[in-house]
Amino acid sequence: MEYSGKVDKVDKVGIGIIGCGNISAAYLQGAANFPVLDIRGVADLHAPAAQGRATEFGVPYQTVEALLADPSIEIIVNLTIPAVHVEVGLQVLHAGKHVYSEKPLGTTTAQARSLLEAADVRGLRVGCAPDTFLGGAQQTCRKLVDAGAIGQPVAGTAFFLCPGHERWHPNPAFYYAQGGGPMLDMGPYYITALVNLIGPVARVSGSTLRARSQRRITSEPLNGSMIDVEVATHVAGTLEFVSGAVISIATSFDVPKHRHSPIELYGTEASLLVPDPNHFGGQIELARPGEDWQAQPTEHGWADGILRSIGVADMAHALRAHRPHRASGALAFHVLEVMEAFQLSSDTGRHVPIASRPERPAMLPTLQTVNKATSAWRFEHAEHA
């Protein structure tokens, strides 16, 4: 099937946003690139934050109560802090609306399970970040793996290592409170990318470390303030996949500098350098035995642009087409179960089996050109070409 003309009308989906902190700007900016998304209101318990975002992006301001009651809104995007993701998500479901949450889905699997169960009872959907695995770089890597470019995946590495978020975030305390830490903060990007590439995880082994009990903020406006550290700040271990592949992973807020690639996959035929899964693009390289690394063109999915909100857009199109959405609650729950297992493994000194088994999300269609006029058609229909 070939596209034969401009999209004249998009069956838009009403969207509300609860939580107007740092990440909300990226969602609002990205949403403008997806015609299916109709932002009907932004809300925050701190009203000035929501009013500021409403003015900045030219969207309506609403109170949280009004947003939940608005009949024109079908999906609410939950951008609150991790500690209340499930609490707010349940409020959204009880209001009869679908919910798309920032990562992680919850701070524990017990919490997150209650959210999925509530959605099932009401016949509603749960979506969850990250959606970076829908970017052109990660989708191209998925295409290469599925096409057998590296042979059978055997092993790999995944590393997120940094000195800590108190260097740049204006209010970083929640990163070091219960529900925070490098694994729950950055692990979703890496583990989601790996599940997208090679399928679900079967079991986990891990070791964790809390290097300091307090940390000094060096960002503004709290420069010089001390914050307590309640969680492990260095988490390392091994992911054993249902496919048989074994991946070494480490996430840390305690590493001044390093030289590891974000993700490397090693197969029976070749090795693949996968770009930073916290971004939608990046350089892909592949090397076969005896050969140098060769750059691979990004040719599958969206290669560039402001793509935050692509997971919400896919969920909106999925509602209209009555198909599964890709950044699903089931996928996010699996990732949370895996992340939770690292601390459990470290505490008990044993492997932890992973019970959930989500299917890999469907690949996005191959896109040659993307712009605001054609993206909605291609997003929903080109996959059937």
Rank of each mutant, 00 (worst) to 15 (best):
P256S: 13
W293Q: 04
T298E: 03
P104E: 00
V235W: 13
A26M: 13
L105M: 02
R122I: 01
A313H: 00
R320V: 09
A158I: 00
D292I: 01
P48Q: 01
R125Q: 11
Y100H: 08
N22Y: 10
G244F: 11
P297S: 03
L331C: 05
P256C: 05
T348C: 07
R142I: 09
D131S: 13
L367K: 04
R308K: 11
I39V: 15
T107I: 11
S248T: 15
V201G: 07
G52P: 02
A112C: 02
P170C: 10
I81Y: 13
A362E: 15
I310D: 00
L161F: 07
V204Y: 04
K12V: 06
W293P: 02
D276K: 04
I81T: 15
D8Q: 11
V145F: 05
L105S: 06
S271A: 14
D304I: 02
A158S: 15
K143N: 09
S225C: 10
V246T: 15
S24K: 01
F174W: 14
T238S: 10
L209K: 12
A155S: 13
P277Y: 03
M315G: 07
I247P: 07
T268G: 02
E230R: 09
E87N: 11
G164I: 06
A332W: 01
L239Y: 11
